[in-house]
Write a protein that binds this DNA or RNA. Structure first.
Length: 772
DNA sequence: GCTTAGGGTTAG
């Protein structure tokens, strides 16, 4: 796509290019090896289509020596695409003389208006080339010369695939072709083994070409949404039928579809993971788009909004599926809307609530927003597979006035919509992807409907995002364990309800606290029900240090006392080993005069260490902000408020099996329990609310809090779970969570606050990873 | 195993 700025005419333009006078150009002009030469008499601003994609229009006038020809046709519009447009905008000035080559001659859609040449020149891709002779003093433009791209060599630009113009097709050829869709049918089942897509395409040669595509896999079929889409077909065979050429897919067939709108993003619709798409392809699509935009002969689309539908109309409806119900073997009901209100009253087809899948909140016909579509016969198969919440385009829908209670033809009957059996006129249903440009208007309309403060009655419909209709349990990251039969409600409804009440919601995690998950681990006293943070390592360490400054080590009758050297000179560590029992006991050791680090090291042999100090010649526990027991990586804490620490005089008869409870009892300590406490900010499109994950947090994560306190792997597992629910950086999609919530009120300084807590919910997959 | 459909309104 080079532009050459030349100062010496004879030296720069390749000699093989044959110059064609502009007035002699027509649609069938050979373009290979030809060029036109003219003066830039108009240069329009560069138009940016998307990132790094541009279009620019310019008008060039035949070089002076040809001006004896009739005026009017001596000036021609040239449309430049891509980098060439940008380069042209930068390099070329009005008045410059240019030579253009590698163009396509198209029909000028503005010929009537601007009175210029009936054709235009379209320059795109690697073939397009412009040579510029600056008009003013050469000095002014020499600086741009060095910035020019070199001519790509023929070898490197040779495309891997070649495409045959539709006019050049001969029976028997197996070829690759491009075309603009002028008619299409969604894939339908044949009497054979395959699905069949029927389409008709055209290109700059204005030939209408029928194509038939067979494949037993639906994903191999073209994804055509509307007339004007552009398809690229690989390995199709030209056949004679009824006196004209038709194309049929052959072995190795593949298809890619693009939106046909000029300037719309070039997103390939294809199932193949890797497909070849070069700059040349890009420009071919651009050329076809530009050409199609200028064609008035293309059939118009028959899409309509619900608001513009009248009885007896056939139209294409772009809509969202709210609910569906199987009526009988040859009929499925689809309740849809597009956010506009029908001018005619809409019929409500009544269905048993059990038979309805999707939003049960609406009965249809409501406020003339919800249309009841009956899909018959061959469409039942597709209709049954649709997911409520998804976006659809229904082709050739028939508006039928049901005038049961009104005289026929009075125009006051209720409208229902029939998708009749068969595929005539392209009758069918297509699911549109969420991000389809064809949905932007629909989504905007639904959004404005949603924000209408006068209509809160629709809350249950509009506030539920499409994804939450997804009934595929594989896509939901959590699972309910309760046996309530509550139906799912939007968070907005949860917030409106009066507590206490239970709910099932499907929501996403927007954020959570504490972000540092180790802070989610708390100590809870089952007696006084207070909650406190787990003392941090430094605080505990300091308390141990303070205890070192105690009085002389005491000797207890119930224990053998041994001394160890500490890391500090002169300081002895006392180990008091209970002497009762048959052989004495080293399972449980009372340790005095040791630092936290030393106690931890001593407990590494899986012995329970109880840190103690001497006071009044008796042993007692340290401050209750320190662990009462350190056992390997496990630490037990006592409640300051509820413990009644005795002098340590363990009685032999008190000793049964050594466990946390018996140790605590022996020490007179009320043990604190490890618990998780997290605040999850949930959202679902209807709103957001904060829910606590506390009492059922252990089963939610499938990790006991006490294990998490002692085991880094368990903490990592929780981190992974939270990262999955709320991917860091927000780059990945957040999964939906099925949650069982309960609302309740908490009184705090005379103020009633409504709280929500998560119960009966488990994380999917957590039970497996916890086996680590 | 080598076909199917080959556009052009249901009739609920």
């Amino acid at each position: 796509m080079p532009i050459h700025v030349v100062t010496d005419l004879r030296a720069e333009v390749p000699s093989h290019l044959k110059k064609v006078p502009i007035p002699q150009l027509n649609r069938s002009s050979a373009v290979l090896g030809t060029c036109v030469k003219g003066k830039v008499i108009k240069k329009y601003p560069l138009v940016s289509l998307e990132e790094d994609d541009y279009v620019l229009k310019t008008v060039i006038q035949e070089h002076e020596d040809q001006l004896s020809l009739p005026p009017g046709s001596t000036s021609i519009n040239a449309i430049l695409f891509g980098p060439l447009a940008k380069e042209f905008s930068k390099t070329v000035n009005q008045g410059d003389l240019v030579v253009m080559a590698g163009f396509v001659v198209g029909r000028s859609p503005t010929a009537q208006k601007d009175g210029l040449h009936p054709c235009n020149l379209q320059l795109a891709g690697v073939d397009a080339c412009i040579y510029v002779y600056p008009s003013s003093s050469t000095g002014s433009s020499t600086s741009t010369i060095s910035a020019l791209t070199p001519v790509p060599s023929a070898e490197t630009t040779k495309p891997k695939y070649t495409y045959v113009a539709l006019k050049d097709l001969k029976a028997g050829m197996i070829v690759n072709i491009y075309g603009v869709v002028t008619f299409f049918k969604q894939p339908f089942r044949t009497k054979g083994t395959d699905y069949c897509s029927t389409l008709k395409i055209t290109d700059q040669s204005d030939i209408k070409l029928g194509c038939t595509i067979f494949s037993e896999k639906l994903e191999d079929h073209p994804q055509i949404y509307k007339i004007g889409d552009i398809v690229r077909l690989h390995r199709v065979k030209a056949q004679f039928f009824n006196g004209s050429i038709n194309m049929v897919s052959t072995l190795g067939f593949s298809v890619v579809t693009f939106d046909g709108t000029v300037g719309s993003p070039m997103v390939p619709r294809t199932c193949s993971r890797s497909f070849h798409f070069s700059d040349e392809d890009r420009h071919t699509v651009e050329r076809l788009r530009a050409w199609a935009a200028s064609q008035s002969a293309l059939p118009s689309m028959s899409s309509a909004l619900l608001s513009s539908v009248r009885p007896r109309m056939y139209f294409d409806l772009t809509c969202q599926l709210l609910a569906k119900a199987v009526m009988d073997s040859s009929c499925t009901l689809l309740r849809v809307w597009d956010g506009t209100r029908c001018a005619e009253p809409l019929l409500n087809v009544s269905v048993e609530p059990e038979a309805l899948e999707g939003s049960t909140a609406i009965t249809g016909g409501r406020d003339n927003l919800v249309a009841n579509v009956l899909a018959y016969d061959n469409h039942v198969e597709v209709a049954r597979g649709l997911k409520p919440g998804s976006y659809l385009r229904i082709y050739n829908l028939h508006a039928i006035s049901q005038s049961g209670d009104t005289p026929p033809g009075s125009g006051t009957g209720h409208l229902s919509f029939h998708l009749h059996g068969g595929t005539a006129y392209g009758r069918g249903i297509r699911v549109l992807p969420e991000d389809s440009p064809d949905l932007q208007e629909l989504k905007r309309t639904l959004e404005s409907l949603r924000s209408d403060p006068n209509d809160s009655s629709l809350v249950e419909v509009w506030c539920t995002p499409p994804e939450s209709f997804d009934s595929d349990p594989e896509n939901i990251a959590t699972e309910l364990t309760c046996d309530h039969t509550l139906s799912f409600v939007p968070l907005a409804c949860v917030k409106k309800a009066t507590p206490p009440e239970g709910f099932h919601v499907r929501a996403q995690l927007r954020s959570y606290q504490p972000e540092r998950l180790h802070q989610a681990l708390k100590l809870h006293c089952p007696e006084c029900r207070t909650l406190q943070d787990v003392p941090d390592e430094e605080t505990v360490s300091v308390l141990f240090q303070e205890a070192l400054r105690g009085t002389e080590s005491s000797r207890e009758a119930w224990a053998h006392t041994r001394h160890l050297d500490s890391s500090d000179p002169g300081r002895k560590i006392s180990l008091h080993l209970p002497s009762y029992g048959e052989k004495g006991n080293d399972e449980l050791i009372f340790v005095e005069g040791a630092t936290l680090e030393e106690v931890c090291r001593l407990s590494e042999g899986q012995r329970g260490m109880i840190p103690v100090k001497s006071s009044d010649r008796k042993l007692t526990l340290l401050d209750l902000s320190t662990p009462v027991l350190i056992h390997g990586s496990k630490r037990l804490y006592g409640c300051k408020r509820c413990s009644q620490v005795k002098w340590l005089e363990p009685e032999p008869e008190e000793r049964g099996e050594l466990n946390d409870r018996s140790i605590a009892e022996m020490l007179g300590v009320k043990l604190l329990q490890y618990v998780f406490l997290l605040k999850l900010e949930l959202e679902d499109g209807s709103g957001s609310l904060d829910a606590l994950l506390w009492k059922d947090a252990e089963s939610f994560f499938c990790v006991p809090a006490s294990d998490a306190a002692a085991n880094q792997k368990m903490q990592d597992q929780i981190k992974q779970t939270m990262d999955r629910f709320s991917p860091p950086g927000g780059s990945l999609e957040r999964p939906w969570l099925d949650l069982c919530l309960r609302s309740y009120t908490v009184e705090e300084s005379g103020q009633q606050t409504v709280c929500y807590q998560i119960f009966n919910t488990v994380t999917r997959g957590a039970e497996h990873s916890s086996q680590l």
